[in-house]
C-alpha cells in the first residue's frame, strides 16, 4: 500500500504533465488554430490523435525500421561499453598513459563527432558500419570518462587498509575500486544511451537505406508530417525504455546504495 502510494507519487506528476501537454497540443492542432497561426497547411501540423492514427496504420513499416535502428543502437552501445570500461581501466592502471591521454580524451569530447559521420560513410559505406562507428564514438566518452572518475574517486584510506590486509593490486581493483566506480559507470551508460539514439538517427541521415532516421528523411521530403512525428515518438520511446532498463540493472547491482 505504502509502496504503491510511493510509486504513484513519483509517476503521477510527470504523467499528468505529459497528458496536459498532449491535450493542449491536441486542442491547438486539432482545431486548426496552430496551423492558422503559423500560416501553414493543416496537414503540416498534425495533432497527437493524427500521429497515433498513422502510428497504427503504418505499424508494420515503422516497426521494421525501428528494429533496424534499435539494432544499431544496441550494437554501438555495446561496443562503446566494452571499450569505455576497458580504456578507463587501462588509464587507471597506467599512470603514464593516463597523464598522456586523459586531457586528450576530455578535449576530444568537445569535437562534434556527428559531423565526421559523412567521412565514416565514405570509409564504411551504407551498411551498419558507419552508424555503429558514430554511436560507439559518442557513447564511448561518457562511459570512459565517468568510469575513470569513479575509479579515481575511491577513498585512499580504504585502499591503504586493504594493503595492510594482504591485498594485491588486482584484489584492490576487484574489491574496492571497481565496486566504487560502478555507480559512475552507470551514470556514464545512461548518458551514453540517450546520445546513442541521436547518433543512430544522424548516422542514418548521412547515408542509409533503412531505419527510422531514413524513414524520417523520406517522410520529410514527402511532407508526411504525421508519420515523421510518429518516428520521433518511437525514437523517444526507445530512448526512455533503454534508459529505464539501465536504471533497473543499476538498482539490481547496486543494492548497497
Amino acid at each position: 500500500m505504502k509502496a504503491a502510494g510511493h510509486t504513484a507519487r513519483i509517476w503521477l506528476p510527470p504523467l499528468v504533465l505529459v497528458l496536459v501537454l498532449l491535450g493542449l497540443w491536441q486542442l491547438a492542432a486539432g482545431t486548426g488554430f496552430l496551423a492558422d497561426r503559423l500560416g501553414l497547411d493543416d496537414f503540416l501540423v498534425p495533432s497527437p490523435a493524427q500521429v497515433a492514427e498513422v502510428l497504427w496504420q503504418d505499424r508494420g513499416l515503422i516497426a521494421d525500421n525501428a528494429a533496424v535502428t534499435l539494432v544499431e543502437i544496441l550494437a554501438g552501445f555495446a561496443v562503446a561499453l566494452l571499450l569505455g570500461l576497458a580504456v578507463a581501466t587501462l588509464l587507471h592502471f597506467s599512470d603514464l598513459v593516463r597523464r598522456a591521454s586523459y586531457p586528450v580524451v576530455v578535449a576530444s569530447q568537445t569535437i562534434p563527432i556527428i559531423v565526421i559521420a559523412p567521412i565514416l560513410v565514405v570509409w564504411f559505406g551504407y551498411g551498419i558500419g558507419p552508424k555503429l562507428a558514430v554511436i560507439a564514438l559518442i557513447c564511448f566518452f561518457p562511459i570512459a570518462v565517468n568510469t575513470l572518475d569513479g575509479l579515481r574517486s575511491v577513498d585512499p584510506d580504504s585502499v591503504r587498509m586493504m594493503r595492510t590486509l594482504y591485498a594485491s593490486r588486482s584484489q584492490i581493483f576487484r574489491r574496492v575500486e571497481a565496486p566504487a566506480a560502478l555507480p559512475y559507470a552507470f551514470s556514464g551508460a545512461k548518458i551514453a544511451v540517450a546520445v546513442a539514439v541521436i547518433g543512430a538517427v544522424f548516422g542514418e541521415w548521412v547515408g542509409s537505406e533503412r531505419g527510422l532516421g531514413h524513414l524520417m528523411l523520406q517522410d520529410n521530403a514527402q511532407l508526411m508530417t504525421a508519420r515523421l512525428f510518429a518516428s520521433v515518438a518511437v525514437l523517444s520511446l526507445i530512448a526512455i525504455v533503454l534508459f529505464s532498463l539501465i536504471g533497473l540493472v543499476e538498482r539490481a547491482l547496486l543494492r548497497w546504495r
Partner: peptide
C-alpha cells in the same frame, strides 16, 4: 591497520568486510 574512519566497504556485508584479509 585500523584507520581512523572505519573504511567498511558498503558493497559487502559485515561478515564479508570482516573476512577481507582471508579472501585476500
Amino acid at each position: 591497520w585500523m584507520p581512523q574512519t572505519d573504511c567498511l566497504l558498503p558493497w559487502y556485508t559485515a561478515l564479508d568486510n570482516a573476512a577481507l584479509a582471508l579472501r585476500n
